[in-house]
Design a protein around this nucleic acid. Structure first.
Lengths: 179, 179
DNA sequence: TTATATTAGTTACATTTGTAACTAATTGCA
DNA sequence: TGCAATTAGTTACAAATGTAACTAATATAA
């Protein structure tokens, strides 16, 4: 009905680049689908987004981290963390405690009736989603997937570093060290 | 130096949720790293972003698609496509031709000296990045990866549909069909 | 010490992105 | 026909995000 068949391959054309089979594109699709699916479990109920969820998750495991340490661990940049922390504080999900040794630094803790409650509600949802997702794979595949994702992540970082002048997927929190 | 060891496992705590081993988180990290790495190849040189690149890639393979059809094929929503098309037009990378049969619709084509040029420059970059990335895996792993990503994508869509009322990862272009 | 550089965290501004509402054209059907 | 529902695409507004600039505190070293 429309002239939508693959192209006549005129002259010296770039031969058929298939976006739908392009790994980065497929990764992006999958990530979006999965993130959306999980976010739906907490977004409205708890009025938080992905950055807030990550902060909560990390603080659940490592209470007392400072914002900059969260940024390091979550690969979010410090502004994103700062904003997430503010929202969480505004909603009573976490509190700050001044660091005795360094007055720039604020140690962060989930509140018992706020952050911990959310954590205990969301963690099972997240785990359940992950489990249901991984049920699409065999046990052998699951192991291989983890291993491959690790290799790909390492490689991607290596490529990016070898390419551009310098780059950090927020692997380090701050924009220091440049030139 | 800081009190950052895993928690004392107090009372009925949610036991150690490890964000860094959570599949959706790892997918998100990898996607961001890869997207950034590729985008650096065209962002500044051609003044386009990911949505524009996708539109160009799809039009390279399927010349004459309308914006709504691009939205279907790329899983972007129609507003994103509309904006990308406008920018590309503003920069002379593509042109519209009215559809004879349906005057709402505009058939889109890359310009020979604009869009095609970008396409022919960026496609090799993209392919090269993908190749370098996949070099981290064995041939067997590469095949398995593709197959697993397919299974996971299908499963994720299935989960999302079974969960929320309704959902489409822009798998369909418009927000029709709702109630 | 005291000047300089670094770090933690926030604020300001510009861009991007999503949702909803809108216009114009087409389709369905009474 | 002709009127309601649908579709293509755009616009308007709000929320999210990134970059740079900033304040305050600490570390470095002359």
């Amino acid at each position: 009905m429309n002239d939508t068949e693959p192209p006549p391959h005129g002259a010296g054309e770039t031969e058929a680049f298939e976006l739908e089979n392009f790994l980065p594109y497929r990764l992006s699709l999958l990530t979006n689908t999965v993130s959306e699916g999980i976010a739906r479990g907490y977004r409205e109920r708890h009025d938080i987004g992905v950055p807030e969820w990550r902060v909560i998750a990390v603080l659940g495991r490592f209470p007392g981290l400072a914002a900059s340490e969260i940024a390091e661990r979550t690969a979010m940049d410090k502004v994103t963390v700062s904003r997430a922390v503010r929202r969480l504080r505004d909603n009573g999900l976490l509190e700050r405690r001044p660091d005795a040794a360094d007055r720039r630094r604020q140690r962060l803790h989930l509140t018992r009736d706020g952050g911990h409650e959310v954590l205990q509600h969301v963690v099972p949802l997240a785990r359940d989603y992950e489990k249901r997702l991984l049920d699409a794979l065999s046990g052998k595949e699951r192991n291989l997937l983890r291993s491959m994702l690790g290799k790909l992540q390492d490689r991607a970082l290596a490529i990016n570093q070898s390419n551009g002048t310098e780059f950090q997927n927020r692997g380090r929190a701050n924009k220091k060290g440049r030139e």
